[in-house]
Design a protein around this nucleic acid. Structure first.
Lengths: 204, 204, 204, 204
DNA sequence: TATGAATGAGTGTTCATTCAT
DNA sequence: CATGAATGAACACTCATTCAT
């Protein structure tokens, strides 16, 4: 008597999730290139061959992990209403970004290592670039909407939301990069306190 | 007529330098893992075997490259007197950092990819961490010496030079990371202009 | 209402036939080694595991296919009465062979590829050799029975039916081999016309 | 002191020849698909990795073997003046082909197995088809030049050199195929004797 | 010192076969 | 009887490293 459809799906989901989980961790820990498929299989508690029932290749697995992580991040990252504050400031946004980064640590560690390695990047076929572009354009919207970063600035300072967005991106990216590199020791709240005075100006 | 000692040494230095140069470029272009020793030898114009007369292993070569780059950076990066301005501001420092990053592009690209990959990082045995620590403490000195970032801030804001240094580090690191990832298209000067108002307060 | 014994057997035969059919086609198209069991199962519309209820192994399946094909061929190939002519000539025989080869194309393609690969041949355990031997002895009978190939030949030419059979076999084999290799473009009728004058002498 | 250029070349030639020899034999014995690179290396007495210093891939090795064999065959096969007879007949040509086939046994065994396996054939990228075409057109020239196969035939039989060439090709191919399949037991001379009467008509 | 041929452990991937259900 | 998830041994191929010369 064969298994039911549901039983099969449950088995699949379990194995699939185990593989993705193991690979996510290992890619984040050791990088894509240094992670052997055999190591992924061992950590996932399955045979090496089984991985290929779920993912056509190691590259394909990377893509799947990236897209899953990206979806999770999208669900939470760029949704201002979820920040809690009724009228969130840029500061709230930055703080939120850092918190979510910590939550999705291994995804971000993976993203950072991918961005630093053109060779591996290509395996994702433009996905990471799109992803950066998306963040950047979202930040542009925020910057355009927000008060000037320096409220005291004289009126004749010409605003440049695109450049401001890049700056903000660099700032957040830098903090988050340091954060995922030393998640246990990074003094996030103190660093954020330094930022607060500049970015309390309202947005949206 | 046999070669003199000096001639031999000159040849050695030449080969050594050629290897380091070739490997630096290739590591930056393709990443450490994806660069074959044979490719390094080919680009350096020497035989594969000869590399092992100069460097005990591929890892050893990585260490050598890092240390050479680091030395060069040290020679130029953290020496405020070379910034040109008589009384350089934090802004001058940041600007200087960006310019030097562009100058040492492949070194920085390598550093960024190393920092993102704990596994490869270990091959350098703590050197990168030391390096980060050094930059951080230098920045702390600057921050402590400089006026508050927000000169208009009310007097009761408690300064925290360590956190400020981390923030500054994140900012510079973020910008430089983006810079080396898209050296040709990054709008550096515009981004810097956004920064100028905040960091014109004197230092040193 | 439980299925009757007959229904079960009918289902079995159906599955079995589907597997054999799918495998025949695929082996002929792609060769034995390049055909995956999964591909056979997919084309046959059954699960991979089920194949092993009917055939102990991929090799066993090959044997089954060969024997089925061989049986079909025997049923039609060497039966002179089916050639249509009342007193068939060697030419009729050759023509008939070619026509039947076209009809059983994938079987013959398989046979040709098997004969060219000693390693795969062994999996059939002498079956192909027996098969060749059978054809050869049949041809010997024909040659012995037929008039000399060259009716004008002087009487003192000593007949050698065994060698003539081998020659005839080579000729038919060669034509049929070319035929199955390019079934759509091979100018069979023209080639046969060239043969006709020599092999019109009666047999049987 | 490095080896001289000549020494290197000698080493290369030796290893290369050993690989080609081993692979030729194994491909002929077991077929391309069933021959593992490790088996080639073992028979050649070298390490598996070394093969890739000489051939980019297993496919590449196959191509090299085919082209080498083909060159050797070309050097001897289609050169009528080398047949010995002053005015060679089609029979001389056929006989010569058989003798040369025996001489280049493993090449021909390889060719036959390749022709029977479309999948492997593609790896040679049209080379085998060209090769067949070449033989065929050479045979056409011979057939057109030769007297009618049946000199006694009445004058009104229309000659068709293209079809005759295909027939001749099939005949030779068939004999040679059987020959390489049972090189030790095939009664070549007896078979040839059967052929002699028909193909003594002069050519060229 | 300098060469590049040679090695062998390691990689990602495939696939015939098994088995719990 | 029937399923397809799971296995593991094989495969082609890569590459850091060694070594005779």
């Amino acid at each position: 008597m064969p298994r039911t459809q549901k039983q099969f799906e449950a088995m699949q989901d379990e194995s699939r999730a185990a593989i993705v989980q193991a690979a996510s961790e290992l890619f984040a820990e050791q990088g894509f290139a240094h992670t052997a498929v055999s190591a992924i299989a061992k950590r996932a508690g399955i045979s090496q061959g089984l991985m290929y029932n779920y993912f056509a290749s190691k590259d394909d697995l990377l893509v799947a992990i990236f897209e899953k992580g990206w979806k999770e991040v999208q669900d939470s990252f760029l949704v201002p209403t979820r920040m809690g504050a009724e009228k969130p400031s840029l500061f709230d946004f930055i703080e939120n970004a850092c918190i979510l980064t910590l939550k999705h640590q291994s995804f971000w560690r993976l993203v950072h290592s991918l961005r630093a390695q053109p060779a591996t990047l290509e395996r994702l076929g433009g996905r990471v670039q799109e992803f950066e572009q998306l963040i950047l354009s979202q930040l542009e919207v925020f910057c355009a909407a927000s008060e000037p970063v320096l409220p005291h600035a004289v009126a004749n300072i010409k605003r440049n939301p695109q450049a401001e967005a890049r700056l903000l991106f660099a700032l957040i990216d830098g903090i988050c990069m340091h954060l995922v590199q030393q998640p246990d020791t990074y003094p996030l709240s103190e660093v954020l306190e330094c930022l607060r005075p500049q970015y309390q100006s309202r947005l949206l």
